[in-house]
Each structure stands twice: as C-alpha cells, then as structure tokens.
Write a protein that binds this DNA or RNA. Structure first.
Lengths: 357, 357
DNA sequence: TAATAATCTGTAATCGATTGCCCAAAAAAA
DNA sequence: TTTTTTTGGGCAATCGATTACAGATTATTA
C-alpha cells in the first residue's frame, strides 16, 4: 500500500501491452472495445488500484465538476440549509461544492468571484450581499461563460436564472394574519431596502394593509440591521410614539426575538397586547419558551431547485441563453407569539417543518 | 469581452514572438528573465486578460489547492464556525475549501472520502461521525499520502494531527461549578460514548464528583441522542426515581433545552431547584428567556489552528511524519440556568463570545 | 474466392503550464 | 583581441487522459 506513485493508464497499458488509448476507452466503456479486453483492463485497473486523475480529465474537458456557492454567511441556518439542498442534488451528479462567504461585503464578494473563476468552476450559485449595488463583477461571471444562478437574494440581470421566495406574498400573508388576529396598528421592521427581498416583504405588507383598509403609518416602519439588539431598540423607538403598535411584523427572526425581549422587559403581554411575527423560521424561533411565528422559506427546496436549474442549463444547448425564474411559496408558521386564539388551549405539538437541525 | 476562448501563455508568446517558456517564467517572476521582457509580458498579459489555468498548473504540480472538510452536519453552529475558521486561515494561502457532510453516517463518510481523494484534494479536515468505529477508510487517506487533520471528534491514529477541546476539563469545570452552586445530586446526559468527546466529558464529571466527595450515582447518568426531545424524556425518566437530581449537566445544548422545557412544564424552578448546564454554546442558549449556561468550544479558533497545523504539515519535510495534538481550553459561560447567586441582581450584559451569528 | 463491411486497436495531437538542459549574445576578464 | 563568464531565452519533455483519424483483423456478402 505504500505505492506513492499513483497508477496511470500508461501503467496499465504497459502491463497489458495495449495502448493507453485502449485503456482509456475501456475505462470509459467505449463501444469500440471488445468486451474481452474491456474486462481484462477493468480487472487489472482494480488490481493495480487505479484511480483516474480528475485533473488531467478536467484539463482535457475544460470542466472541473466543481461549483461555487457564495453566501453572506455560512453559519446562518437559512444559508447552510440551502447549501445542503444544493449538495444533495449535485453530489449524485459528481459535483463538488465550494463554499465562500462574503460577510455582507461587496469587496469580499468580488474577491471570491475572482478566486472561483480562476479555479475554473463549472458554475456559481449566489445570494448577493447587502452592500452589492453594481453588477459589474457579476457580469464578469457571465463574460467568463460560467453559468450563474441566484437564490433568495438576486439582482436583475439578463441571462441569469434565479430561485427566490415570493417575498411579497410572504409579507402579505403575515400582515393578513396579524389583521385577522385583530391587530390594527401593525409595525414593520424592514431589512436593508437595497435588497429586493426586503422591499418585496415591505410591499406585501403595504398591500395587505391597503386591502383591509388600514391606513399605512410610515412611523411604524423601521429599518433595522439583522442583529438582535436592533429589534430591541426598534421597540424602544416605537414605544416613544403616541400611538404604539399592537403588532410587529419583522422581516427577520433575530429582530423579532430582540423585540420580544424588549416587550417582555416592558411587561407587555404577547400576543394579547402585541403580536409578533418574524421571517426565516430560524430554528430558535421554535425553541423559545414563547415560540415565535415565522415564515418558512423552504431553504432545502430552494437549494435543490437551484441545483436543478443549473443542471438544466449545463445540459441544455450551450448556444442559447435560457433564463429561468423560479419563485417559491412562503409558508407562515403560526406560533404562540401571534396566535391569540390558541392561547387558551395547550399548544399542539408542531409538525416538524425541518429546515434545519 | 465576448472572447469565449481564454488566452493562454501561447497566445501571449505568439503575439510577442517569444516562447511560451519565457512567458511562463515571466509570469512566475523567474530571475532568468530580464525585467524589460518581464514588464512587457506582464503588460500584455493584462491587456489580453490572461488568466492562468489552474487545472494545467495543478496537473503539472500535482497540487490542486483544494482541501476537503468533512463534518457530520454543516448547519450546526459549531461546525459551521469551525469551517469558517479554517477558511479564514486558508483562503489567504490560495486554498479553497470543499465541504462535505456525513449526517453521522459512516457510509456517507466513506463515500465522501473517496470522492475527495479522487478529486485530488491537498488535505482533509474531519470530525468523525458517531457511527464511525473502524478506521480503515481513514487509513486510506494516509495511504494516499494526503494530510489528515482531525478536529473535535477524532480517532486514535498514528501520524494524524488533531485539534480538540479538553473535554475532560470541560466536564470537570461544569460539574465543579454545579457543586459550588450547592448541588449535590448532579445528573449527566451523555452523548454517544463511541465518541471520545463524550467519554471525556463523562470522565471529567466523575472526576469532579470524586474530588468533592460526592458519591457517583449511575442512575443519574443517561445516554441521549442530540435531539431536544431526548432531553425532555431523560428528565421524565430521572423524575421517576426516588432520588431526583438537583442539577443536570448535559453534554449537549439541545438536550439541555429539552430538559429545561420539561422541567418548566413540571413547574420546577430553575436554577433554584435544579441547575442546568449545556455544552457547545450554541447561539440559542444565549437568546432564551432563561439563558442556558454552556461550555464554549471556541470553534473559530479550533478551525484556525487546524488550518495552521495543516499548513505546517504541508510545508514541512515531506519525508517525516510529524503529528501534532493541540488541545484547546474550554470556557464555561455561566448564565441564569445555573447561576443561583446572580438571581437577585439584574443580569449583566454578557461579553460577546462570538462563536457565530 | 474476392470484395466489402464491421470490429478492434494503435498513433499522435491536444488540453496549458512548468522546467531541465542547452545555446546564443553580451559583458567582463585576461 | 581573445577567452571566460554571465545573462536571457528557446527546445522539448512532462503531468494523465481523451479522441480524431488511420490501420489491421475478422466477419460477411457477392
């Protein structure tokens, strides 16, 4: 077992007195090789513990069978779940996934893209960072003839497929749910409006208010970072107003958590006085003593579909650029933080909606 | 920008009427090339938008600049943080990280290893799965002359470096802490004892009991899976005993959470009647209404050190096998779930011990 | 039996970059 | 001026696998 030297097709060809071409063909199960020699070669290859050199193959074919995934953070349940979805779908096809994080910083995003492009990746999946405005660096990917698929956070670019959530609908159903709980003064914590996902959630919220004839109050909309503390201070701010909200729809779970902590500190009862709903269905929302309602984004499915879209693109006619926009359905998980009706009953064991853990 | 064809050193050599060798040398800043031609070539390369082909390079050098990381799950804060640590350390050295998950299944582990080995990785970082007993498949990595570094969960193998936590100490300090809170009947939820980390935590627990003259009660030790529910049912089981515990040291945070939920359901006050401490410092432990004490494993540092160990190994004498065992210090974060003294005061803002989020 | 078709297998170029070895030309020394 | 040394750069092999094209057998058909 101490054979440092890997066996190559040449070693096999020498041993069997055939040409390397024959060996290569046999290993690739070419119909041009008689089954007799094929068997012999396969057998010898196994004996000699032959492993094909993917590099040589890649060099010849121009394909590496590696794809890159670029996300803001890897240790966010949502993103790691999407990645898992991509992997599950792509691994059976022989692909490996290289993961990069931007930490929400465009400069990192550029670096990562360059690094991936020169490692000769076969495709890139990405969720753009908050600070991404220009798309020049993204265009470079396309100029390089590398397929690009956006998921969740996208930019408008021709020729790029995307898999996203219907965030408008997400915002709408949350708001509608809150209205049906009897809430009339619904505040909204929005994320960075540079990102479509947040503008869409915001628009959904406004649309629902309008449909139910509730006056939109701009004072009740606060733009927050995705930190827990930001949720708490947003509550402080809101409760300085003459007209305090009776519900909070937060575009992120962490803010919702911070808000709840602050509300509790102020002895405000949830959901009796104020209902709270988050977004993303991060695992902790379910674990809390007061479980937090949230919108599930089916990250696993999002990843799988992104992978499928990529495969289609790879296998399709190379000449034509087909772009495909898949929009997934959000699912509102109503938990105690916003469920006034259920309060009397003992909480029912929730059906596991695994998007992680 | 629509040049499908990537420019190669040959393109440059043709344009400048020099040989490809010269171009290659110039690009690699070889001293054999005059600075005049070097400048010219560099300039032309930039103009022609030359990108070196990593595959060709890799084929020639036998190195891919890719490393693999194998973990049970990617969407566990602990693991994703370790990965982040590895990346941060390795990216500046030009490496890319390929991530694989085993879902705690040896068979997947074997597949992933094979896949990585035949993509010609330069090294493998791994945390073995619960179900890994034999080490044959791991030995294959070494036979393949690929550096292997264990982190957190390791197997005893000669020639393999590892970066782990001092789990014995972790178990000890938790137990000691509980004893100092006045607890005398400390239960222990252990993980799969096939893994060293859990036996070590267990041993640390027993050692502390012994040092403080507390009789070890085997009935108070329960082996649980890492699910939340497992923590709850363990409590049920323990509270059937005549002699109920007054503290729980859980080897995992999820079980600790489950235990707390069940204790609350039984109206048992925490920490007054029962203290609870978890292990891993998962983000949610800090967020809970009743924050859970836990042991931080400094995953980011663990990843960085693992990467350093790898780099040393790569750059060292290839002939000698040096194995290095780094053991990190656990840090107990005392929170309300086990802090009887602090109960009267207002909780002090905790210093951010970022291991994620 | 001869001609044609079908079936295997080999030759050599190719994918880009690297590098040991050799050879000019220029500079330095004699 | 001649010899030696230095400097700068080219040639060609190499990393391993793939594949178009050609050539050699064997089988089939006329």
């Amino acid at each position: 077992m101490k054979d440092k030297e890997k066996t190559t097709i040449y070693d096999i060809s020498k041993k069997l007195n055939v040409s390397a071409a024959t060996v290569s063909r046999a290993l690739n199960n070419s119909p041009k090789i008689s089954s007799a020699t094929k068997d012999l070669i396969l057998k010898t290859a196994k004996e000699m513990n032959y492993k094909q050199n993917r590099l040589a193959q890649a060099l010849k074919s121009g394909r590496t069978n590696n794809v890159g995934v670029i996300v803001p953070y890897i240790n966010r349940n949502f993103f790691s779940s999407v990645i898992r979805g991509i992997e599950e779908e792509l691994t059976p096809h022989g692909y490996h996934v290289i993961i990069c994080q931007t930490h929400e910083n465009v400069e990192n995003e550029k670096k990562q893209i360059n690094a991936l492009l020169d490692t000769q990746i076969d495709g890139i999946f990405m969720s753009v960072s908050k600070t991404t405005r220009q798309t020049d660096h993204l265009q470079k990917i396309l100029d390089n003839n590398t397929p690009l698929v956006f998921f969740d956070r996208k930019k408008e670019m021709t020729g790029v497929s995307s898999v996203t959530l219907d965030d408008f609908k997400g915002g709408y159903i949350v708001t509608e749910h809150l209205i049906k709980q009897g809430c009339k003064k619904i505040a909204h914590f929005s994320g960075d409006l540079n990102l479509e996902i947040y503008t869409n959630r915001y628009e959904g919220y406004k649309a629902a208010l309008k449909d139910y004839d509730i006056t939109f109050n701009p004072d009740h909309v606060i733009q927050v970072s995705s930190k827990i503390e930001a949720g708490a201070s947003a509550v402080e701010e809101l409760w300085k107003l003459d007209d305090c909200p009776d519900a909070i729809f937060s575009a992120g779970d962490h803010n919702a958590l911070g808000a709840i902590q602050e509300l509790k500190r102020r002895k405000i009862r949830i959901p009796e006085e104020v209902c709270v709903v988050g977004f993303s269905n991060e695992p902790f929302t379910k674990y809390m003593e007061l479980p937090i309602s949230s919108v599930d984004q089916t990250p696993l499915v999002m990843g799988q579909i992104a992978a499928e879209v990529f495969l289609e693109q790879i296998n399709g006619k190379k000449s034509r650029t087909i772009e495909k926009k898949v929009v997934l359905n959000p699912e509102l998980l109503i938990r105690n933080s916003s469920d006034r009706k259920k309060q009397v009953q003992k909480p029912v064991a929730e059906k596991a909606k695994t998007s992680g853990v």
